[in-house]
Amino acid sequence: MAEGRIRVATASLAGCFGCHMSLLDIDERLFELLEKIEFDRTPLTDIKHCGPCDIGIIEGGCCNAENVEVLREFRRNCKILVALGACAVTGGLPAQRNHLDLGACLSEVYLTEPGLVNGQIPNDPELPLPLDQVHPLHEVVKVDYFVPGCPPSADAIWKILADLVAGRTPRLGHGQIQYD
């Protein structure tokens, strides 16, 4: 840890970046936070891979192979892993496809949908391959803390971060825990 600051990485998997937006919503408290932490891989730094970190924060659930790779990389490198937001905690909106058969789904969208001409299921190796179901993070790796909400409020995120940085077990009070 450079200058004794706590190293933090973040990523958005099968999410909408709404949780990251909410993170930015902690506004001027960011400056206070930045005195104590430094960022590793995040959408804010453009670092491509997560190195050894104290805290990893992940938004979104796992819906494809790439999500799994990133999540595993975070788990390998982060001492503390936090699932941030409804999708990371429950699978969220993307998981509402879980009762559908993936094969039938791809087939309907790309092959049999009326009006499609010469339909083809995209098969570029650059594209991450979808999993048959969307999973909340804790079904794929061990997760240490959970922050529900769609998105969690800036206050809730601030409280969790402040607790983690200070070495307190993170807790949210009434009005800060929300599932929507």
């Binding site: 429950t90 699978g91 909106l93 804790h138 803390y145 959970f146 529900p148 949210l172 825990i177 929507d180």
Partner: peptide, 30 residues
């Protein structure tokens, strides 16, 4: 239970009970 897309959200007893008890995750496999 996908609260963000549920019209009952905010008026739901299960959800409110989760808030009161400090439930942050279902924990188990869904």
């Amino acid at each position: 239970h996908f609260c963000p897309s549920c019209e009952k959200s905010g008026n739901c007893m299960l959800q409110a009970l989760g808030y009161d008890l400090g439930v942050m995750t279902a924990g188990f496999r869904h």
